[in-house]
């Protein structure tokens, strides 16, 4: 349940951005996270509702976007974005080699869009 801590940090950042831009009510907030971060969307929504209930931000929209893995073959350099995480353990779809991929995308948690009034 690190989602509670994550959402608390999101709300800290959102409140800071709102006050910097002279806004007082959050309308929409978008969080982008990598598939490797193992963020549970339901837990994020529950935390968001709990933290906004009874505040001016109650009822704001929470958008959660999961970013897929990006893998690069260490041998042939082929870059791809598999939907299935198990591609990590499969041969490279381009050259068939089985050396480990380097992970180019799919980690990190960012607040990347806010709408407010």
């Amino acid at each position: 349940m690190h989602e509670l801590s994550l959402m608390a940090s999101v709300m800290d950042i959102a409140r800071e951005e709102l006050s910097r831009h002279g806004a007082s009510r959050l309308l929409l907030l978008r969080i982008r996270y990598g598939v490797l971060d193992q963020v549970q969307p339901e837990a994020m929504r529950m935390a968001f509702e709990a933290m906004t209930a009874g505040t001016p931000h109650e009822g704001a929209t929470l958008e959660l976007v999961e970013e897929p893995l990006g893998l690069r073959c260490s041998l042939c350099g082929h870059v791809f974005h598999p939907e299935d995480r198990n591609a990590l353990y499969a041969p490279c779809p381009a050259c068939g080699d089985t050396v480990p991929f380097s992970i180019t995308e799919g980690e990190g948690i960012f607040l990347d869009h806010l709408e407010a009034e």
Binding site: S9, E17, L111, L114
Partner: peptide, 14 residues
Amino acid sequence: MEIPVVRNVLEAND
């Protein structure tokens, strides 16, 4: 209003 922002959620911890 739209607020353009890309901020690492873990920035305070980091």
